[in-house]
Design a binder for these strands. Structure first.
Lengths: 151, 151
DNA sequence: CGCTTACGGTTTTAATTTGCAACCACGAGA
DNA sequence: TCTCGTGGTTGCAAATTAAAACCGTAAGCG
């Protein structure tokens, strides 16, 4: 979006994603895409953002391989925007963000929605980072490390 | 940051967090805070962003209760910025974002870092949304639902 | 056919935000 | 006293965002 060059020569695993979805609207567009919205007009109505901004954001998401355009499912002369594999990979990010929002951005007692397991209608478990052996890892238990390539 | 009023009267559990951390730099500041950075200068050196921008971001994160200022640990006349409980709650978000970045933003073979379990040095498990009964939930298996208040 | 509407944008223009650079304030040392 | 390091603030130019008007195509209708 903007020529944002990190001070280190190559962007890290957190900064690169932010280039793709690090603005206010993009993640909301992706969320709506998970909710089944596909058309320009659907996104615009749902989000209430200016059409030029939406056009730029969609273009950006497509450029980053998060959405792709497919021929319109209803025969109209336009196209649909659908999530790619990469885009669907954002599901845990969105879930984590939502859980954090639900936990910290609502007054106790303020009504809000929660993520539930569709099958049983029960709230989902809180997302937790787990080690291979199943231990729950907190911020102090994990670190980034250069991984020996194996392929 | 900006008076962004969603078309629906009250912001949802995804949009509210984005008001707090939905800009390019804020999450990177939080990540650095998880890495133990505490001082204005440390953040600035690490991220390489303009001082005025950093000042505004830090102020915003403090205003949102994600960081708080504490008297400097080294006796200098300034203060440290440390994560609050709410801020530490962002750990899964950051982990999810990092895993997504690692999975989709690097060429195969391009060297990059991965999150590892500090204790055993092994890569962590991929974050997964789980139902109460332990089933892994994909985008189609979960939905948002108004939760009956219970307290 | 001629008129109107819906859809999916693009263009124009103004307001807001960003980022660089210069400046300021304060305390510690020399 | 002079200078330096730290932690900002201020001014200003450039980039981004947002609102609104406009455009082109296709469909619906009388």
């Amino acid at each position: 979006m903007v020529k944002r060059i990190s001070h280190s020569e190559s962007r890290c695993g957190v900064a690169r994603p932010l280039d793709a979805i690090g603005d206010w609207w993009s993640l909301l567009i992706v969320r709506d895409a998970f909710d089944g919205l596909r058309r320009f007009g659907e996104f615009q109505k749902s989000l209430g953002l200016a059409k030029n901004i939406l056009a730029v954001r969609l273009k950006n998401l497509v450029a980053h391989g998060i959405l792709e355009t497919v021929p319109a499912s209803d025969g109209s002369p336009y196209h649909d925007y659908v999530l790619t594999e990469k885009g669907r990979g954002l599901f845990p990010v969105l879930a984590a963000l939502r859980q954090w929002g639900e936990a910290f951005f609502f007054e106790p007692g303020e009504k809000h929605v929660v993520l539930v397991d569709k099958k049983h209608g029960q709230p989902v478990r809180k997302l937790e980072l787990l080690a291979q052996d199943g231990r729950v890892l907190g911020p102090e238990d994990a670190e980034v490390r250069r991984q020996p390539l194996r392929h």
